[in-house]
Amino acid sequence: MTTAESPATDCIDGPLLFARVLDGEGAGHPLEWAEAMNWQPQRTGEVLWVHLCRNAPGVEAYLEHLGISEPTRELLVSDRTRPRAFREGDTLVATLRGINFNPGAEPEDMLSMQLWCDGIRLLTLRRMPLQTPRHVLKMIDRREAGPSDCGALITELTEAMITRMSSAIIDMNDHLDGLEERDPEDNPEQAMAMISTIRRNCLGLKRHMGPMHEALEAISRYAPPWFEDHDRREIAESIDRLKRYLEDLDISKESAVVLMDELRGGAIARSEQATYMLTIVAGIFLPLGFITGLLGINVGGMPGVDSGDAFWMVVGLCGAILAAQLYLFWKWKWL
């Protein structure tokens, strides 16, 4: 699994990816980096959302300009991306993780997004391209009932992040269903490899989604007062969905284990059947080989050397022994 993140390459305005001033009615207008750095609300209800490359030059200076404490600044720009959330005065700080849908990525490769919010400004920071913020940005730009305040924006981001997780889980379940319906004799090695990949993906997703569940619970429990009751209810719904996804992962993992055991059992049964048949064949030819070997020794006194019928007598004897063996194997239920 690839957990290291490569530097972003799409920061074209300093560290800024995009910035929007929400008007409190589900829409917003863009700002340039210089405007976002010195932004102040012009009317009641306005909030600023700034999405940044956390490893780009200028980020730490901007965080210091906002008066964010040094330990929190280090957390927001660090590569320690285990999901967590905590309250610091009237601000909310969190690290969340979402599935990496970039080309060539595996479902278990997850990307981090740090956020900091004081109820007026929301900063989100990432290193690799993350599709969730762009999804919410489209809602705002299209005026499609986008978030109206910081609490709604945070809940929308977490909801979109969790929703995208479901597609990876559904895809794994579809692969498992296909493996269960396929012929066990049809390329079992390939099926075993696919099941191993699914199990690794399940373990990787659960390793990150478990702490994500704890982080969302911390947001719901400890968020500042500007995080309103309806936002807490939305987060509670997201927590419930994430819990169901974790249960689905457990079921998928157990299904993969059962399916792998069945494939291994089938392979062992086929191997044992082949060994059994070889043993039967060896048991049949052992006495015949003994007789022919005994009669083939090159010593004097061998009976039938001067008789023209001796060969056919030996063939008849071997046939009789073979018939007797087959009868006994059938009676003993070996065949």
Rank of each mutant, 00 (worst) to 15 (best):
T2K: 12
A4R: 12
P7K: 06
P15D: 09
A19C: 05
D23Q: 07
L31F: 04
W33A: 15
A34M: 06
N38A: 13
Q40F: 08
R43C: 06
T44N: 08
W49H: 11
N55C: 09
V59H: 06
S69R: 09
E74G: 07
D79I: 00
F86I: 02
D90F: 01
T91I: 04
T95I: 15
T95H: 07
R97I: 08
G98M: 04
N100D: 04
N102H: 07
N102W: 04
P103K: 09
G104K: 07
G104L: 02
W116M: 10
W116K: 11
C117M: 09
R127L: 06
L130T: 00
R134H: 13
H135G: 05
H135F: 10
I140A: 07
D141E: 14
G146S: 07
G146N: 10
P147T: 05
C150W: 03
C150R: 08
L153E: 04
T155N: 01
L157V: 06
A160T: 09
I162H: 04
T163H: 11
M165G: 08
M172S: 06
N173I: 01
D174R: 08
H175A: 11
E181A: 09
M194H: 14
S196Y: 06
I198C: 03
R199K: 14
R200W: 07
G204P: 00
G204F: 00
L205N: 02
R207Y: 04
G210Y: 10
G210S: 15
E214N: 13
A215C: 03
A218I: 14
S220L: 13
A223W: 03
P225S: 14
R232N: 05
I239P: 01
D240E: 10
R244Q: 12
E247M: 08
D248E: 12
D250P: 00
S252D: 09
V257R: 10
G265Q: 09
G266Q: 14
A267S: 13
A274T: 15
M277Y: 10
V281I: 15
I284F: 00
I284Q: 01
L286R: 00
G293F: 01
I297W: 04
G301E: 03
M302Y: 05
D309C: 04
A320N: 00
A323I: 07
A323W: 01
L326A: 05
Y327H: 07
L328K: 06
K331R: 15
K331A: 05
W332H: 11
W334F: 12
